[in-house]
Amino acid sequence: MSERLILFDGKKCIRCHSCEVGCQLENDAPPGIQLRRVKSHIKGRFPDGDEHFISTACFHCDDPACVSSCPAGALSRRADGVVEHRRERCIGCGYCIQSCPFHVPQVSPAQHTMRKCSFCTQRIDNNKEPACVAKCPSGALTYYPDGKIPIGSVAYGKAERLHMMYALRGKPGEYQLPDPVPLNTVKGQQVWKWIGGLVPGAFVLAWLWKNAFCEEETHE
């Protein structure tokens, strides 16, 4: 199956917030929860300043840390690259929030679960565009159902195969995006953390064990 993509073009965004509204209406988001958010970043100072806009949501990582961390099987990566969140399985433990390199998931107190962008799976599975793309009047958000973005285009997250990519007007840092794109720390580094705890821990426990033995022998 081809991988789905959304590409954001920083040159075209006019900060009208239509994508936010379309997303809210489509995805049953309660007040206080915004699954997509438009933000502006000002570069330079008046009168030479320049304003950059960005429309962000879940990055739908190729190797998602949230899927690795979920203890309830609520998160999964579909074959088309969409990171799916099944709310009926979510226990609301918040571990995905801590493990997501962008801290995208949010807790919805009203719905007792985590919420994040769903890539509008209910729409894309019926050959429609995601709601944010459908509502964008300036063409800043484009949906590529075949996963092929125009050849030669430079985008944040292209090399890391994120499924929400950004063609930016400046450096990622100017948009407060972490640079380079952070990776899955749950799966990638966990083994070393276990070893890092087990080796000194076992060593000290073994010493205590031996110590308990030794003194007993000297007493008897």
Binding site: S69, C70, P71, G73, K193
Partner: peptide, 10 residues
């Protein structure tokens, strides 16, 4: 009902 070997919480 789930065993996720990647997840420290699981």
């Amino acid at each position: 009902t789930v065993f996720n070997g990647d997840s420290p919480m699981s």
